[in-house]
């Protein structure tokens, strides 16, 4: 349903506040505001709503921790990498949409896509690692220290951050953060209870 057309004078007050009037019209409105307390009150009220709304939303934005936006960037970065990768197997749209911020354990198709993408990026290093592993195996065969029978070789494994096969936080919302430093990696799930008003 279309809005009913606003009447002239109050609309002009709004345009005046928004700086949308030409010079002549603006001067006229200024004169009117000077003469008419009601017009002045309406102009002040427009400013009041503006300040309230802006302040309210900006406070809500300030309440979002920087780490959250960092997390968003990491996801953007990852998505841009995936977009730049050579044509992978198609991921169903529903799964692609749901991967936005959460880390979920991917089904076979998207896991393979991530692996192939990773291999493409790290091809040189992967080959290096394979050569090294071959050298280790060769040394192991030659050296053959005493002890129990052959044990599986624990090769260097590329680090993957935590993934969530499922996550439910009844009565709250959750945020996932991956942190990493020289002491190792960690994953944090922070649950915000439902009755918490964070910023809003």
């Amino acid at each position: 349903m279309a809005d009913p057309k606003p009447t002239g004078t109050d609309l002009e007050l709004m345009q005046h506040v928004d700086g949308e009037l030409d010079e002549a019209a603006d001067r006229e409105v200024e004169l009117r505001i000077g003469r008419d307390p009601d017009a002045r009150a309406k102009v002040d009220a427009l400013g009041e709503v503006s300040e309230l709304l802006r302040g309210h939303l900006e406070l809500a934005t300030d309440a979002v921790p920087a780490r959250r936006f960092d997390q968003i960037w990491r996801e953007i970065d990852k998505q841009l990498d995936l977009a730049a990768a050579p044509a992978p197997a198609a991921v169903p749209a529903e799964r692609a949409a749901s991967e936005s911020v959460m880390m979920v354990l991917p089904a076979q198709a998207s896991l393979w896509r991530r692996v192939t993408h990773w291999l493409d990026r790290k091809r040189g290093y992967v080959i290096t690692a394979m050569v090294s592993a071959g050298a280790v195996a060769a040394i192991a065969l030659v050296a053959r220290p005493g002890g129990t029978g052959a044990a599986p070789v624990e090769q260097a494994v590329a680090h993957r951050p935590a993934e969530l096969e499922a996550l439910d936080t009844p009565g709250g919302t959750w945020t996932m953060m991956n942190v990493s430093d020289e002491d190792g990696a960690a994953t944090v799930i922070w649950v915000t209870p439902e009755d918490t008003v964070e910023g809003l």
Binding site: P4, K5, P6, T7, D10, L13, M14, D38, A41, K42, D44, A45, L46, E48, E51, L52, L53, G55, H56, L59, V197, L200
Partner: peptide, 26 residues
């Protein structure tokens, strides 16, 4: 079809400290 005059006594900044008011804005 007219605008309304001032509502919060000219101190929106202070008003925003009030959670109740923020809930009303929301």
């Amino acid at each position: 079809d007219s605008l309304l005059p001032k509502i919060l006594g000219g101190n929106p900044g202070r008003a925003l400290m009030d959670k109740q008011i923020r809930a009303r804005i929301d």
